[in-house]
Simulated scan of single mutants.
Amino acid sequence: MKNSKLLDKASRLDFSRLPGTAPASPDAATPAPPVFTPRPKTAPGALMAFANDTRSELLKENETLRERAQEAEVLRSRLDEALDDLQQWEGAKAARLIEASLVRPSRFANRHPGSFQDADYLKLRHEIQDAGGNVQPIKVRPVRGEEDSSPVRYEVVFGHRRLRACQELGLPVLAMIDNLDDQALFVEMERENRARKDLSAWEQGMMYRSALDSGLFPSNRKLAEAIGVDLSALGKALSLAALPEFIVAAFPSPLTLQFRWAKPLSDALAADAAGMRERVLDLQALPQKLSAREVFERLVDTAPVERRRQGVEPFHPPAARRAIHLGRREVGSIGVDAQGRIDLTLQPETLDPDSDALDALARLIAEFLATRAGGRGG
């Protein structure tokens, strides 16, 4: 009787709710047989099973952390590269295209008109035309206080020739825009032009004089310190800018004046201003154009004027040379220099210098002089 009761209780037990038992299939007519996970029979065994389960979880978590660390390292590397690229642009100003008609030259610029006509400018203009614009940007600053009717919105800091080329070609100009005061504008303009060797010695002198005359700097020394040039070099440039207009006009162009000529020209002018004017007049009377060096040498040479003043050597205004033609072919020329000497020049193939032709030519000249000179030579 006792055994039957135990069997009856055992038949009513639901083993599907026990841990480790497989759930019954919903489609099955009868519940699936229970699946048991072996359980440790001792406390140390249970402790080992718990340790194994914990170790598995730690290994999985460690693997996840390792993968995340690798991803973080890749992101850190990309961030470092981006920061390096950004560092290269630190302090850089963005450039953009603006209408060239909205930009005016700086009032401190002293570009001679010849700067926009020489071979270098024409080459620059051609390059800008081929490229469809200026590849190297100019720098401008916003203009304040302009009348509302004025189209001008910017003033050039540097890049006057690039601006002029774009204006002539009807192209927008690539420009960096920066807010600068007058002194900062002048310093940047001067340093950029000097680095590019764009300005001639005379133009630099005129620019320095403009800055001093406008009160931008209180002294030559302060100006030299601001732009980083030697004080003596600044003085030479200012000496060129201080030359009278009649001396500058004696040269083929002011752009041909050189720094080292400043002191000799200034000294010659200070020693004898009237004599310098006479020498300039002598140069203007010459029929041929002299180079800048030849002009300089004649201006600082006081001998011809001194000889004329002493009556040692008469002065004859030079005459234009006359060409000598044989048929339609020019075979030589004849002229008079500043000392009154008649200069006859014949092409080498015109006359054989080893023949008697020279004697015959000399006799012809003598006969001509006898009839024209009226006995002056006799």
Rank of each mutant, 00 (worst) to 15 (best):
D84H: 02
R209L: 15
L83H: 08
D120Q: 06
I227N: 03
D352M: 15
D356I: 01
Y154H: 02
E203S: 10
W261F: 15
L326H: 06
R221T: 13
R277I: 14
L265K: 11
P317K: 10
S150L: 09
V156H: 10
R221G: 12
R307M: 08
L169P: 09
A10F: 11
E190Q: 10
F251I: 11
R328S: 04
A237T: 01
A95T: 03
T371W: 09
D272A: 00
D282T: 07
P33L: 15
F315D: 09
S232K: 12
H126G: 10
A109P: 06
G327N: 00
Y121S: 02
G332Y: 00
A370H: 12
P26F: 13
L344G: 01
D359F: 09
A95D: 02
A320S: 05
A184Y: 02
D354R: 07
R191H: 12
T345F: 11
R372K: 03
K41E: 07
L199W: 14
E203V: 05
T350Q: 03
L102I: 04
I128P: 03
H126P: 10
A32Q: 02
A224S: 04
M276H: 08
Q204E: 11
L346V: 03
V173D: 03
A268P: 00
V135N: 02
M176I: 09
T345A: 09
D8W: 08
N62Q: 10
L265M: 07
K236W: 07
A250L: 04
D8G: 05
S219I: 13
G375E: 12
R298F: 07
G374S: 12
V157L: 02
Q136D: 14
R12M: 07
A211N: 05
A270H: 13
G275K: 05
Q88W: 15
M1K: 15
G228I: 02
V295Y: 00
E168L: 00
I227W: 01
S214G: 10
P264I: 02
C166N: 01
G235S: 15
A32M: 06
A92R: 14
F36M: 13
V140Y: 13
P317M: 13
D85Y: 14
I334V: 09
R161V: 12
